[in-house]
Amino acid sequence: MIDFTEEQLERYSRHILLDDVGVAGQEKLLQAKVIIVGAGGLGSPAALYLAAAGVGTIGIVDSDVVEVSNLQRQIAHFSADIGAAKVESAAAKMQAINPDVEVRTYREYLCAANIRKILAGYDFVIDGTDNFPTKFLVNDACVFLNIPFSHGGILRFNGQTMTVVPGQTACYRCSFRSPPPPDAVPSCAQAGVLGAVAGMLGTIQAAEALKHITGAGELLTNTLLTFDARTMAFRRIRLKKQESCPLCGPHPVITELADVERTVCTVQ
């Protein structure tokens, strides 16, 4: 058992008091490794909450620099960070909240060539990416590496999220076979997004990671949770692991990682 310092006992007291987390759960958190893909709207709140929770090792992947248009929703970044690498900006805030955590930064754009190496060894992945090709790539890599992950997406006033435990529960491709063609779906940059919606969704994803690590409650598996912040209506759509899934079904068609973007481009 970890010997908590007096400061750690105070810092994590609200977790230790929870029957479903307790001393054992907090120890698991301190020993856990979670990686967040994207240090943007979803990744920011997820990174801050995981750091605050004392997740021992947190990876964060993003190739971008902070721009002024990010600050309306990407709450790990401050005005003074404009021009700085997002991963460095986020890491500084995470360490400032909790020096107990080790933050590993990956200033890279995730692609088929590097994703296995980056995600391997982590216990849980938070998908906070802003585009469909990367969401499918994260799904495929997590299924191949057998790492549970939280999918998340936001647009305008809407959010959607589901948790996938590879081999056991429906994967993203069980329901959504392949990325929509480029421009079929507007991006956040074109359609806009309410800033707080990013916080709502990224925070749900962080809670799923904490639940997975501690074993508390039930994960949001085989369920797509969607909400519309205009009415605050939440819906749970039941999903099933599909025999016909091209990735996690018994007769997979997808047997290696590919950059979906590129295949779409060659079709044009």
């Binding site: 058992m1 908590f4 006992l9 105070e10 007291s13 230790i16 008091l17 307790g22 001393v23 054992a24």
Partner: peptide, 14 residues
């Protein structure tokens, strides 16, 4: 409260 309960829980854990 609540640190007395936190410390009690830590003691039980050992």
């Amino acid at each position: 409260c609540p640190m007395n309960l936190v410390k009690t829980k830590v003691a039980f854990a050992k």
